[in-house]
Write a protein that binds this DNA or RNA. Structure first.
Lengths: 208, 208
DNA sequence: TCATTATCGTACCCGAGAGTATTTTATCTT
DNA sequence: AAGATAAAATACTCTCGGGTACGATAATGA
């Protein structure tokens, strides 16, 4: 499908795709996708504007590609935690831990690019929006499967799975937004704890 | 301070401030503040661009003024519910009811302009940001006071008030975002129910 | 060697949007 | 009636950002 047969012909390409993607990722993530222009990225990477357009087609195309990178970098790990069939409390701890890592120490921007893009999807192009929605659904599915799994072990309250999945998704979004607004990570973690421990507290105690 | 002595002198003003504010409010609210230009508002209201600038000073000034209107329209009612010293469950029901009203029936856009602006504050001017922060703090204070009150009646779990306030704020934001993403109001309401009933479920049952 | 191919990158186009210079006009003051 | 005042609105300016035209260039293939 994606054939790069080292198409020997023509002038060899010098554009550093990964560099552009990485730079764009960090810029979008830290400044918000709407506040970074193609020219900015060109200046930061040394790439030429037509080069970037040749590679990604459009602004929309670049954002979509960056979102793909972000997915494998910060969304998939969340899904992995959910699918790693472990005791529910452990999974929750892992989720909280992942979300409230010390970003500054890791040189990673605060907040979540995916959450930010969702909040600004009105300003994004069609392909980025499609990708956004795919990721949203896959996350929601992962939450759903995880919740079902936990329920089957009696470790999750009797809440309709789809509702609970939306709830968890909302907590993730809320946490990422708090982090972005400058709330300390340990505070965010404490909010997440009361939020995510809730559906498991009710597991054995409350029926409906 | 804000003296409008009907300054009898000069050509009388014909610009309809309220019309501009109302139009801008609905536009920002439905399309997102970043997707509405001053020119758009001029075209919709028949106002002239210099007229708008004379009245509001700048884009930032207009947005700030609109946010003020929005505050009294959609934020203050929430605060009023919180301050209306009623049984905690009643307050929760009122909050959920207010947030999940049928907007289309009321001719009101989905979601919350305040929440939207918070998510896009990087694209807003300084005075709008300041106002945004003031509203954020006053809301947080209102949540805090309400939680303290509920606690004093034994109707709220033993969670640090500031953490609980952030939690409630996050639920509000989450609900408004869900609504905007097209999730049906009754689904949003069900998510809010499990979210907001949580801290009161633990009130009498769990100590820590 | 010379055509072919495909990328490179400078210099541009174009539209949108914030903000304003300027002239007119309506009302008040004297 | 003649200034004085302030708002009206047209028609700009200026910048920014997405996107591209096009000649130059570096490789391959015959």
């Amino acid at each position: 499908m994606n054939e790069k047969p080292n198409s020997v012909r023509g002038r060899p390409k010098t554009l550093d795709r990964d560099r552009v993607l990485q730079t764009a990722l960090i810029q979008y993530w830290s400044k918000g996708p709407a506040n970074v222009s193609i020219s900015d990225i060109c200046n930061l990477t040394g790439a030429s504007k037509p080069g970037v357009y040749r590679e990604f087609g459009s602004d929309d195309g670049l954002k979509e590609a960056v979102l793909e990178v972000y997915h494998s970098l910060a969304i998939q790990p969340v899904i992995d935690i959910l699918e790693k069939n472990q005791p529910t409390t452990d999974a929750i701890d892992a989720l909280i831990g992942f979300m409230t890592q010390d970003r500054t120490a890791l040189g990673i921007p605060q907040g979540c690019l995916f959450v930010m893009m969702r909040a600004q999807s009105q300003q994004l192009g069609p392909s980025t929006c499609v990708k956004l929605d795919k990721i949203r659904l896959s996350l929601l599915n992962a939450y759903g499967a995880w919740i079902e799994h936990s329920k089957s072990r009696g470790e999750f309250a009797d809440i309709p799975t789809d509702i609970a999945a939306l709830f968890v998704d909302a907590q993730h979004g809320g946490a990422m937004r708090m982090q972005r607004e400058g709330i300390p990570n340990d505070t965010v973690a404490r909010v997440l704890e009361i939020a995510l421990r809730m559906p498991i507290l009710g597991a054995s105690t409350i029926g409906r």
